[in-house]
Amino acid sequence: MTTATDSLPATDSPFTLSHLDALEAESVHIFREVAGEFERPVILFSGGKDSIVMLHLALKAFWPAPVPFTLLHVDTGHNFPEVIEYRDRTVAQHNLRLHVAHVQDFIDDGRLRERPDGTRNPLQTVPLLDAIESHKFDAVFGGGRRDEEKARAKERVFSLRDEFGAWDPRRQRPELWSLYNGKHAVGEHVRVFPLSNWTELDVWQYIEREGIELPEIYYAHHRDVFKRDGMWLTAGEWGGPKETETVENRLIRYRTVGDMSCTGAVDSDAATIADVITEIAASRLTERGATRADDKMSEAAMEDRKREGYF
């Protein structure tokens, strides 16, 4: 990329940290700050790679004691079975407590209405806020990263939400040094993003280094898919394919895991972590650009959803 004219960074000191070590130390610091300052924290756990890395960091942060947080999954009902199986196995393995908020319950009793396009990602906000309120969670860990999307690039590590769960970019507190201000009024809560400074590549490199198991759908496999909005979607009961859409069996993998109706697969033969890292390093698309229909809606789609209280 560039030609070296200067000497490499001084490595005389034995006290160096790799970028993964530095990111890990920062994330662990954030988990411990929350444990020290909040009454009822919860980790949003979807079974996606970012939430899996969060849980892994939390397990390390409090070793040999158990993680002092419960988990919350907002279940759209359009889940990949492999992910639910992984979720339940992980919860049992670490003796954790999992709350599940079902979008379906809210549709059944009329608090939410199914969208014409069948996607349920935007519907998660109401059950999420309901769970936060009913369980009185005061700190909610999310796996959001600032590299994902430009509205997230200005997100704080500790992000204050009002009593409606809403995010007001103008009310966000300046964050200096490693001093996080978690003060909040009754009814307000703080979203906490321990992976703020990680990139997709960092997450995968860390998964490789730590030998973290992921749901199989992150690796290449054959699957019946059909094309919609330029993405490969999995055929299923949620409403695809339409008559005009043709199902094909392709070798694909998922770069992100979300609602089946709007999470696209990518053509890939990356069967191992090393393959995936090679693929991401060479990719010319961001993870959300490649796989998320909901972010393609408008220039400010994420900003608008965040304001309403989305992850």
Binding site: M1, L8, R146, A153
Partner: peptide, 14 residues
């Protein structure tokens, strides 16, 4: 109006 954080990497550094 705000601090924006950007991420990039080269062969040598993040």
């Amino acid at each position: 109006i705000d601090v924006a954080y950007r991420y990039f990497a080269t062969a040598r550094r993040r």
